[in-house]
Amino acid sequence: MEKMNIEKLWDKYKDIIPYGVFGVLTTLVNIVSYWIFAHPFGLSVMVSTVLAWILSVLFAYLTNRKWVFHSEASTREEIGKEIVSFFSCRLATGILDWACMFIFADLCGFNDVLIKCAANVLVIILNYVTSKLVIFRHKG
Rank of each mutant, 00 (worst) to 15 (best):
R90V: 09
I95W: 00
R90I: 02
Y13E: 11
C117P: 02
N5A: 10
F41V: 10
G20Y: 12
F110T: 10
K14F: 14
N111K: 08
T75G: 08
T49Q: 15
S74Q: 09
C89V: 10
S131I: 04
T26M: 07
S85H: 04
C100L: 12
F110H: 14
L107E: 00
C89L: 03
H39G: 05
P18T: 01
G80E: 07
S71G: 09
V134R: 10
L126M: 15
C100I: 05
D106Q: 04
F86H: 12
V24Y: 03
F22W: 09
N111F: 06
L58P: 06
V84H: 09
G42M: 11
F104E: 01
I124A: 14
V50I: 15
Y61K: 11
Y19S: 08
A60S: 09
T49K: 09
V113M: 14
S131D: 04
S56E: 08
I17T: 02
I124W: 07
N30L: 13
V29D: 02
C100T: 04
S48G: 05
L122W: 05
K8V: 07
L107M: 07
W35Y: 03
F86C: 12
D97Q: 10
R65S: 07
V47L: 15
N30E: 08
R137E: 07
A118K: 03
A38K: 10
F59Y: 03
H39S: 05
A38R: 07
W10M: 12
I95P: 11
C89W: 01
V24M: 08
L62V: 14
L25K: 07
N127W: 00
R65E: 09
L51I: 04
F59T: 05
